[in-house]
């Protein structure tokens, strides 16, 4: 029930931002429309979730966003430097790394973060065996290590595990 109300609030927020500045008429229309849309999309978006997760995970999510934005900025400066360098210093590779995340939303966030951070793009996810295939722009020596992990990915994974699982 709580997640259904959360979905309604999310659609209502999107509506409000679209029809800014808020008026009474846009409030009423928005409530009706987002009630209808959340009723229609509920079965797709709401899945059974494990209960008993601590509310601390919202704090971890905020921490994750800060870390993510910082890594994203570093990644962009790194790629920009490689683009501008006259010798084009790249060592591309597609590698397989291991992940411990199981839930769909956790994997989605991890894959999206990988795509937006240092020289890596997710190509494919093998959910059964827990592998992610990524394309790396500059493969460092000794990466991935014997455990098939990359430092940056493990960093995201540790936080996402606290948030979604």
């Amino acid at each position: 029930m709580v997640s259904k109300i959360l979905i309604f609030m999310l659609w209502f927020l999107v509506w409000l931002l679209l029809s800014w500045p808020p008026r009474i008429s846009s409030f009423i229309t928005g409530a009706l429309v987002s009630a209808f849309v959340s009723f229609m999309t509920m079965d797709i978006l709401v899945k059974d979730r494990p209960s008993g997760r601590s509310p601390l995970r919202y704090l971890w999510f905020v921490y994750y966003i800060i870390i993510f934005l910082w890594e994203c900025l570093k990644a962009n400066i790194d790629v920009a430097w490689r683009v501008l360098h006259p010798k084009l210093p790249i060592r591309p590779a597609t590698i397989k790394i291991r992940t411990d995340l199981k839930s769909d939303i956790g994997l989605t966030f991890l894959a999206n973060s990988i795509t937006l951070t240092p020289g890596t793009t997710t190509i494919d996810v093998d959910k059964q065996n827990g592998y992610i295939y990524i394309h790396v722009l500059f493969l460092k020596e000794g990466c991935p290590d014997h455990d098939m992990r990359l430092p940056v990915v493990s960093k995201f994974e540790r936080i996402l595990k606290k948030v979604f699982e």
């Binding site: 597609t94 590698i95 795509t115």
Partner: peptide, 28 residues
């Protein structure tokens, strides 16, 4: 944006576009 980049990369690979010659490892 990341979702579209991922889908483009996967689609290109699956339809047979090879990575360039400089590629070091190709585990995918």
């Amino acid at each position: 944006a990341p979702v579209s980049a991922h889908v483009l990369a996967r689609g290109a690979y699956r339809s047979g576009v090879k990575p360039c010659k400089d590629t070091v490892i190709d585990q995918y």
